[in-house]
Nucleic acid binder design. Structure first.
Length: 270
DNA sequence: ATGGTAGGTAGCCTA
């Protein structure tokens, strides 16, 4: 089974590109972030014409996540328990930043982690709390094949940005954010792409970052140990940052050997 | 130090 995660930065603007990429890339399940539309605005027809069923979670023009799959999805949930909300004005609102589905016995989350905006901004405290609560839940998920897939808005290492000096005093590279990312690794989760594919996953539209090769690695697939055991390959499709009207993020793709998990007693044949 | 681009929207806000 081939799964992927992609911050598409508006599914309505890019539906043609996305579906074309899905078919060309032989992807079974795609976790999308920043669909930037309500569920009633989602372009389901174009996905379904290509053989993909879509479960979406979007409430307005911001954020929004979805999962497209050509294999059956079960146990779809939107939001995680106790997901913190953000108080833009007035009462905190739980935003459309998380959903999950199970495909072929593998639990897959599509996550759009809050940006954080600036050091000291309330949005950064929101980001850290959001990750803290998610990690608390994830502790209880370690016994099953499960992956947290999405835009974490964190660069875990200095070499995950083009020039760490340019990020002095910025979010995405701060120690509290990196600590929040490492918390998932401490409970047993593994970045299953890190050792299999190099490079950035995001290049800002501004200042010609793509043309200058100035990107960031902020999109990840974190797997439980039972998930990580199934992974056979991974790649970052940086070519998707080029061409006509690209997203500022590119797809991260992971191949998993589901049969190994589903049939434990299968004789080993080499 | 600033501004650079893009999307959704008609709130310039968010990234």
């Amino acid at each position: 089974m081939r799964v992927a995660t992609w911050n598409v930065n508006s599914v309505r603007t890019r539906v043609g590109r996305i579906v074309d990429w899905l078919e060309r890339s032989d992807v079974d399940v795609l976790a999308m972030q920043e669909i930037k539309c309500r569920v009633d605005q989602f372009p389901y027809e174009q996905f379904e014409a290509a053989g993909y069923h879509v479960e979406a979670h979007g409430t307005n023009q911001w954020n929004g996540v979805a999962i497209a799959s050509r294999l059956p999805m079960v146990d779809v949930v939107r939001q995680f328990d106790d997901q913190p909300g953000y108080a833009n004005t007035g009462e905190p609102v739980v935003e459309a930043r998380a959903m999950a589905a199970t495909v072929e016995g593998v639990r897959l989350w599509s996550l759009y982690v809050p940006n954080g905006r600036d050091l000291g901004h309330p949005h950064l405290a929101y980001k850290l709390e959001w990750l803290r609560i998610l990690a608390e839940h994830a502790k209880g998920w370690q016994g099953q094949p499960l992956a947290l897939m999405g835009d974490f808005n964190i660069a875990p290492f200095d070499h995950d940005v083009w020039d760490i000096a340019a990020f002095e005093g910025s979010t995405h590279v701060s120690e509290p954010e990196r600590e929040a990312f490492r918390a998932f690794e401490r409970i047993g989760m593994v970045d299953v792409v890190r050792d299999r594919a190099q490079g950035y996953t995001y290049w800002d539209y501004k200042a010609g970052r793509w043309q200058k090769g100035e990107g960031m690695r902020i999109d990840f697939v974190l797997g439980t140990a039972p998930f990580a055991e199934l992974v056979t390959a991974a790649r970052i499709d940086s070519g998707e940052r080029a061409g006509d009207a690209p997203s500022d993020h590119v797809p991260v793709v992971v191949d998993i050997d589901v049969e190994t998990e589903l049939d434990d007693d299968r004789p080993m044949i080499f």
